[in-house]
Nucleic acid binder design. Structure first.
Length: 321
DNA sequence: AAATCGGGGTC
DNA sequence: GACCCAGATTT
């Protein structure tokens, strides 16, 4: 555990400003979150942190895992009602394992990336089959579960099992990029240098590490936000934030452009899934009407949904699996 | 390393 | 209209 050799400490993101260091420098880098900052952020969280249901003491490890999967690329506000209904219907892994997949996909509703719902059910089945129905401990065992990657395995370890783990999500990346590196935004892709920074910023003591993970993530979600950070309310602003100390320099303009959603297969798949959730079964002719101009696109998306296990073929068209 | 995978709120 | 959101998986 944590046995991986530390990546080169001086590698920085492509678009990072890094103070020049000589190549033969021997001393370990000091750029990390100070003990005082850790205390300050944990204290801030105690007063300003949100009261989210999956943070309650009596919430099961499984319920925490479900929340983490739902929160992958999905804002808290949209997860809240879906998580509540989901946990009411399927409180344990065994409950979800036995549920009809069509109902699972309907309850997932419009959370997006519905393959997450399929993987969550597969995850439940694996937990029942291989772990006696209880969420396993340990990063390796968690990572082996469907739909559980590096982040979610660490989050479940920290927030469900209350063990020490290096949690790095988009919020934590941003807080560390600003407060330690002094840059407005982290690079688009997650680097080994960032993992190393998060690792050396994590308090050694178990209980404090859990509190830090929770608190710094919340700070990124509520204060150190991507668009217009509320530095006036930030406990780090006058307490060592490198970005504020630097005069809050703007992020370099990003010339790359993201794929527009309109007209993509993703949008079409979403429309087909919406129709299936509503009617259960939909004739092909009705699906083709979703884009009369581009029949190949509709057929391609129907094929991919079947291949993903999100839909099944009927004589007429598609139905929920 | 890059592409793909939803959907909606927000600026 | 572009960006963002407690990422994972595949190529």
């Amino acid at each position: 555990m944590n046995g991986a050799p530390a990546p080169p400490l001086l590698t920085a993101g492509r678009d990072r400003e890094v103070p020049p260091r000589s190549a033969q420098e021997q001393t370990p880098p000091t750029d990390q979150v100070s003990d005082l900052s850790v205390e300050t952020v944990i204290e801030w969280f105690a007063h300003r942190g949100r009261d989210l249901p999956w943070r309650h003491e009596d919430t099961s490890a499984w319920a925490v895992l479900v929340s983490e999967v739902m929160l992958q690329q999905t804002p808290v506000s949209r997860v809240l009602p879906r998580w509540t209904e989901w946990m009411r219907q399927w409180p344990t892994p065994a409950d979800l394992a036995d549920a009809p997949t069509s109902e699972v996909l309907r309850c997932w509703d419009r959370l997006g990336y519905p393959r997450r719902a399929l993987r969550l059910q597969e995850c439940a089945r694996t937990i029942v089959r291989e772990h006696g129905g209880t969420v396993p401990r340990g990063l390796d065992a968690l990572r082996a579960l469907p739909g559980i990657g590096e982040y979610t395995a660490a989050a479940v370890t920290a927030f469900a099992h209350h063990d020490r783990a290096v949690v790095v999500d988009t919020n934590i990346r941003r807080v560390l990029a600003r407060s330690v590196e002094g840059v407005a935004l982290p690079a688009r892709s997650y680097s080994a240098a960032e993992r190393a920074l998060a690792t050396r910023s994590l308090p050694a003591e178990r209980e404090r590490s859990v509190a830090w993970n929770q608190a710094v993530m919340e700070l990124g979600a509520l204060v150190c936000t991507a668009r217009s950070p509320r530095c006036a309310q930030c406990p780090l602003a006058e307490n060592g934030c490198a970005w504020v100390a630097d005069g809050s320099p703007a992020a370099p303009v990003d010339t790359r452009r993201r794929q527009t959603f309109e007209g993509t297969d993703r949008q079409m798949r979403g429309q087909i899934m919406a129709a299936l959730r509503r009617d259960g079964e939909v004739p092909t002719k009705d699906l083709l009407a979703l884009d009369p101009e581009d029949r190949p696109r509709v057929e391609r998306c129907m094929m991919s949904l079947v291949a993903d296990g999100l839909a099944a073929r009927t004589e007429e068209g598609l139905r929920l699996p």
